[in-house]
Amino acid sequence: MTLSNIDAFDELTGRIFAKLYENFPKPILLDARRFLDGGEAAVYDARSFTGAKLTPQAEAFVYTAAWLVQEGYIAVRPHSKTNTGFSGAALSEKGLAALKAVPDSLATRATLGERLVQSVKAGTMETLKSIASEVLSVCVKTVILP
């Protein structure tokens, strides 16, 4: 089953945020080969003329990461964009604040970042997408509300 663009975005956002949260404050390489199942084979379409065309999944990863950088959730060094992601990426203040949020409805008091990391490790993609969506909602609320 293929994911809709929003489902793919939510899952990739969750994976990216989990990895950045787990490594914070150390900058890491956000590269499609490290986030997509299948590594190199999942990133480049070998059937393309040059063999350098990105697969749809890799394009989704690159566009998701680029959007998160553009919106200020992830900080990267200048000129760090690569064909398959970004080098030197870390959570920005805005991204870290959202991941450290603890929803009032949770009895466990685990942060959203901790819940993302647990979901990735457990392989619960539906939960991962739900938490990623919740993180972005927290970010939107902090921007809109004073």
Score class of each variant (00 low, 15 high):
142 T>C: 04
93 E>F: 12
104 D>F: 07
146 P>Q: 14
34 R>L: 15
89 A>H: 07
4 S>A: 11
104 D>C: 06
64 T>R: 04
80 S>M: 05
127 T>N: 08
48 S>H: 12
49 F>D: 09
118 Q>N: 13
100 K>E: 14
36 L>R: 09
67 W>F: 10
1 M>A: 09
104 D>H: 05
74 I>Q: 06
103 P>I: 12
83 N>W: 06
5 N>H: 14
146 P>L: 14
90 A>S: 13
136 L>Q: 05
22 E>I: 02
31 D>S: 13
127 T>M: 07
105 S>D: 15
72 G>D: 03
78 P>L: 00
30 L>W: 06
144 I>K: 13
94 K>G: 07
75 A>C: 05
41 A>F: 10
38 G>M: 04
39 G>Q: 06
41 A>Q: 15
102 V>P: 00
15 R>N: 14
128 L>H: 05
13 T>Y: 02
30 L>F: 13
5 N>E: 13
96 L>M: 11
67 W>D: 08
107 A>I: 07
135 V>Y: 03
69 V>N: 07
104 D>P: 01
89 A>I: 02
66 A>Y: 08
70 Q>L: 01
68 L>G: 10
15 R>Q: 14
58 A>T: 08
137 S>W: 04
31 D>G: 12
38 G>S: 12
141 K>R: 10
130 S>V: 00
47 R>W: 03
60 A>F: 07
21 Y>C: 01
138 V>G: 00
130 S>Q: 11
51 G>V: 01
106 L>F: 11
123 G>A: 08
77 R>S: 14
29 L>S: 14
24 F>S: 05
25 P>M: 02
8 A>G: 11
28 I>H: 00
144 I>F: 10
48 S>N: 10
22 E>W: 05
21 Y>F: 15
2 T>D: 15
101 A>L: 00
120 V>D: 10
141 K>L: 12
1 M>G: 14
71 E>N: 11
82 T>Y: 06
13 T>C: 08
108 T>Y: 02
11 E>G: 06
8 A>D: 12
80 S>Q: 06
90 A>F: 09
100 K>Q: 13
75 A>N: 13
47 R>M: 05
48 S>P: 00
115 R>C: 08
34 R>D: 12
74 I>S: 05
78 P>C: 01
42 A>N: 12
113 G>L: 06
10 D>H: 10
123 G>Q: 05
82 T>K: 15
84 T>L: 02
98 A>M: 04
4 S>W: 10
95 G>K: 01
107 A>Q: 09
47 R>D: 06
90 A>Q: 09
97 A>N: 10
115 R>A: 09
140 V>F: 07
113 G>F: 05
97 A>Q: 07
27 P>F: 02
35 F>I: 01
94 K>L: 06
129 K>I: 04
64 T>Y: 05
7 D>P: 00
7 D>F: 03
111 T>E: 09
33 R>P: 10
77 R>M: 13
84 T>R: 08
132 A>I: 01
84 T>V: 09
105 S>Y: 12
121 K>Q: 13
50 T>P: 02
42 A>P: 14
105 S>N: 11
42 A>Y: 13
143 V>G: 11
24 F>R: 01
103 P>N: 12
18 A>E: 02
